[in-house]
Nucleic acid binder design. Sequence first.
RNA 1: GGGCGAGUGGCGGAAUCGGUAGACGCGCUAGACUCAAAAUCUGGUUCACAUUAGUGAGUGGGGGUUCAAGUCCCCCCUUGCCCACCA
Length: 808
Amino acid sequence: MKRYNPSDIEPKWQSFWADQKTFVADNNSPRQKFYISAMFPYPSGAGMHTGHAFEHAIVDAIARFQRAHGKNVLNPMGWDTFGLPAENYAIKTGTAPAEVTKVNIANFKNQLNRLGASIDWSREINTTDPEYYRWTQWIFARFFERGLAYQKESLQWWCPVDKTVLANEQVESGKCWRCGTEVVKKSMNQWFFKITDYADALLDEIPDLDWPAKIKTAQTNWIGKSVGAEIEFTVDGVDAVITVFSTRPDTLFGATFLVLAPEHPLAKQLAANKFKQNVEEYIADAVKKSEIERMSDNKEKTGVFTGSYAINPANGEKMQVWIADYVLSGYGTGAIMAVPAHDERDFAFAEKYHLPVVEVIDKPDDEPGVYRGEGVLMNSGVFDGRSSSDIREEIAAWLEEEKIGRPKVTFKMRDWLISRQRYWGAPIPIIHCQTHGAVAVPDDQLPVVLPEIADYAPKGDGKSVLAGISGWVNTTCPTCGEPAKRETDTMDGYACSSWYLLRYTDPNNSNQAWDPVITNAWSPVDYYVGGDHAVAHLLYVRFWTHVFNDMGLTEFKEPVKKLVYHGYINAEDGSKMSKSKGNTIDPLEVIDQGYGADALRTYLLFMGPIELDAPWDSRGIAGIYRFLNRVWVLNQEYLEAEKSFTTNDDAVRRLQHKTIRKVTEDHHRLSFNTAISALMEYVNELYKFKVDGFSDDVWCDALGTLARLLAPFAPHMTAEIWQQLGNSSSIEEAGWPQWDSALIVSDTLTIIVQVNGKLRAKLTVAADTTADDVKQQAIDEPNVVKFLENKEPAKVIYIPGRLVSIVV
RNA sequence: GGGCGAGUGGCGGAAUCGGUAGACGCGCUAGACUCAAAAUCUGGUUCACAUUAGUGAGUGGGGGUUCAAGUCCCCCCUUGCCCACCA
C-alpha cells in the first residue's frame, strides 16, 4: 500500500498547476466572474508567518470552492513594497532597498506556492516597480488637477526617530505606529488629499457594505459626522468675533462662558494686560506638552482666564473667555461655548474655576449628575416650554437670520496627509516653479523615477534625502521651461495600496492605469480577505474608488463588496506571537516536519471560526494529519480491495448526500471548522461501513465525493486521490458534487419525548407515522408512564419529526 | 468615559429558525497489535449518585417570558477589542 507522504505528493501538483496555468484568470470567459483577494503583504525579510498562512488558507478555500462551482475566479497576488523596513535595512547595510525587496519577494512567492495557493501569478504586481508607481503618480496628478491634492503649512505629527511626518491614522496613543517613539508637533508645508470632500459620500455607503459591523462602526466613528451650528460671539470692547461650533444650539441660553484652544489664533490677542503673562505662559506650556502628557492629565482640567468678555447673543449676558487645552484646536472652530449645566466637561471646568451654571433644560427627577439628554427648555426666553430636539433647527435658522451663525455639519475626519520625508516611496510628481508655483509633471514624463543613491539616511532637516541630489532636483518648469525644482517628498505607502485592486484586473497595461472595460467587468472585489486595518487602508481605498467613479474612470463607487475579516493565530499559551518573545511558529517548518501543506491549511481552518483569535496547538495539527492519513488509507484500501460484495449501499448514499449538503452550506457561511468536522464524521462512518464490504460504483462515488469536498482545504492530496480513482481530468476541473434531497430522507425518525420539559425517552418511528400515533406512542413509553403518575397529560405538543412535549 | 463583541467540559470549539447541550478534534483512559515502544486500530470520557436500565445538577451570576431558553427580555459580574476631552 502506498503511504501518505505529503512531500511526495505536494511538489508534483504544485508543478502541475504551474505548468497547466490552472489558475490563470481569463478576461474573456463567458462564465460568471468571482474576484477574491487577500490584502497584499509587505514582503518582509522574515518571510511568511502563520497569519499569512491562515489568510491564504481562507482565500484558497473560497477560491477553489467558487472555481468548482464553475465561476471564473480571479485570485491575484502582489507586493506592497514601499515602506520603512526596507529603507531602514538599507541604511544599516547599504544594500539598495530594491535589491532587498527582490529577494524577499522571491522568498515569499516560493512560500505561497508551497502552501498550494491557487494564485494567478501572471498578474503579479509590485508597488515599487516604476511601471506600477507611474500610474500612482498619474493618479496623483489627476487628484492635483481636481483640487483633491493640495499643499498646506500646518502643525503635523513628526516622528523624531523615523524623521518623517505621519498621518493621524499612523499615530497610536501619541506614538509612532512603526517605531513607538513619542511623536511631536511640527509646523511644515505638507501635501494632503482632500478626503474630507468625500466624508458624506463615504458615510452614506457604509450601511450597504457587506462588511463586519465592527469595521463599519469604526469607519462611521472615524468620519464622525456631527450636525449642529456655528455661532458667533462678539467680544466686549475688542474688535474680534469668536466663532464656536455646537451640536446643541438649543442650549445657547445656558452658555455661560467661552473656551478657546491654546492654539486658537485669537488666544493671545484677547489676553487683557494684567492677564497677559498668565495666558502666554499657559499657551507656551500647552503647546510644549506632548500628546501623551495632555492625555495623561485629562482628568484634571486646566485653563486660564483671558480677562476678556464675550456677549451671549441670545440673552445679552457677559461671558468670560477662557483658554484651556481640553478644547481641541483641530476640531470644529477650535473654540466652544461652555454649557456647564448640560455637559460634564464644561461642568467640571466651571466647578473648578467657579463659573456660573444655568440650567436650560428641565431634567427628569431621577437623573443623577449633569443632564445631557433632551427635554423641555427653561430660562430660554421665547423658547421656554419648547422641546430641545424640536427647537434645534429653529435656533440655527434664527442665528442665520440674525447673521450671527448658521447651521453647520462638522466631521472628525481630517484631510489625509500624504507626503513623507523619506526615500523609499513613490516620488510626488510635482515641479515647483518660481513663476507658476506647483505644476504637475506632464503625463508623458511619468514615471518620475526614484533615483538610485548611496546614502539613504534622512538628515533630520525636514526634507527627504532626495533633496540632496541636485541632478535630480533641478529641472525645468513644464509650463514655462525656466529652471525649477522637483518636489522631494515621497508618497505614503497607503497611496500605492489604494488602487492595486483595480490594477490586478489589467496589470500589464502600459497605456493606462487600467482599461475601464476590463476593470468594470471584474469589479468590485467579491471577497476581500484580511485581518488588519479598520480605518486607514479600508477607508483610503474606498475614497480613491469614489473619486475614480466621479472622474468617469469606473462604473462602481465601492471597491469591495464583502470584507472577510479573520482573527489572529496566537502562541500556544494564548499570547501574541512575536519574534522578540521567540514564540513564533514558522508555517514552512510545519510543512517540512512532514505534516505537509494540506495538513497545515486544514488545521488552520479547523481551529475555530475564522473571525476568532485562536492559539496554535502543535498536537492539534497532528490530529489533522491523522485525519488526512485516514482519508488516504481508506482510498488505498478501496483501490486494493476485492470488490465483490455489497451491503448498506443506501446508507452510504444517504450519508454521502447529507455530507455534501452540510459541507456546501458551511462553505457558503464561511464556517470551515464545521465543514471539516462534517468530513471527519463522513470518514469515520465510511470506515464503519467498509467492514460490511465494497460495492464498486457506490464506493467510487462516495470516495470521489470525499475528495472533491475536501479539495478546497487539502488540494494536493485530493488531486492525487482523484487521479488514482481513474479520472482523466484533474480535480480542479471536476466541479462540485450535488446533493439529492430525496436520497437524504430516511424512512425512520428519532423523536424526542419530553415530560415537563425534561427528556424522558426517545422513539424510533416510521417516517409516515401520523401525529396522533406518535403522540400515543410517546404517552405509552414506560419511562413516560412513570412520570405521568397515573394522571392525564394536560397538554401534548408534537413538533413534526422532532419531539413530543408532554405537560402534566 | 463612550461604542461594539464575548463568557459552554481539562483545552480549541459545536448546537444555522426557541426543540436531544457538549458534534468534531486535542488531551486523558481502557483494550487490541507488539518481546517492548512508537505508529495504527477499537471502546470510554460534563459533573455527582447509582453503574443494568436510571436519577439529580449543569452553558459567568440573579430574575423573567415559554410546553420548551446556551439561544429571547431585564439587571449584575468578568473579559476582549476599537475610539478616547470631537463640544
